[in-house]
Amino acid sequence: MIELTDLYKSFVVKDKKARAKRRIEAVRGISLTVQPGEIYGLLGPNGAGKSTTLRMIAGLMRPDHGRIEICGVDTQTRPEQARALVGYLSTDISVYHRFTPRELLKLFGEFQGVEARVAERRGMHLLDQLGLADFVDVRMEGFSGGQKQKVSIARALLHDPRAVIFDEPTTGLDVLTAKTVLDLLRVMKAEGRSVVVSTHVMPMVEAICDRVGIIFDGVLHGDAPPREILARWGVATLDEVFFKLAAGEGGGA
């Protein structure tokens, strides 16, 4: 289970026009809970605070205020233990290109404290599930974006995490690869993991998410099943919710 309580996060940025430093409130008072076996969709425009929220859940950033617990482990007081429970996939499609997928997974297995034999078995199973079985011993230099993303997913899931955090996992992928990723997310859900996914792809949200939250200007709006969100806002698509939020209509919150 993932529990976020009253999270706040701000950054100091240089405002070149004003020639001064400015504090930006990226996340403002976000609270939510993701149950085991649930897929939570985090939506919002660019710069809304989605990636910052996901990075805080993954233990990469510390909140200024608030609390995050992964299966009861506090990410601030026990960061290493909390990170061991999380499988995180960032927006960057990037891998250590000099390695083969097998070598990369072996190494990350060691980083995560997974026994070599178990890491090998689980890694090969994941690569097989993702359709990369024929490429396990090929250096990743020439891999396509989709292939790299699949290896990154296998890397994120290698240590059998209870919480899965995927930041825009289908961005830049073709339809077939995107479907493979969605199928895997369904498997994660079936295995009882708590999954948080951020995306711009609305059909994906409607297809796999049990609940969604819309972040706008660092504030969470919604936090309900997709159909309920649509009903609350009185619109037919989630895109329209975005437009209403951009127009300053906060009625659905």
Binding site: E80, R83, S90, S94, V95, F111
Partner: peptide, 14 residues
């Protein structure tokens, strides 16, 4: 630059 640092930092290594 290559975007791999995040994957390293997200592991349980201190």
């Amino acid at each position: 630059e290559r975007g791999t640092l995040l994957s390293l930092l997200s592991t349980s290594l201190p």
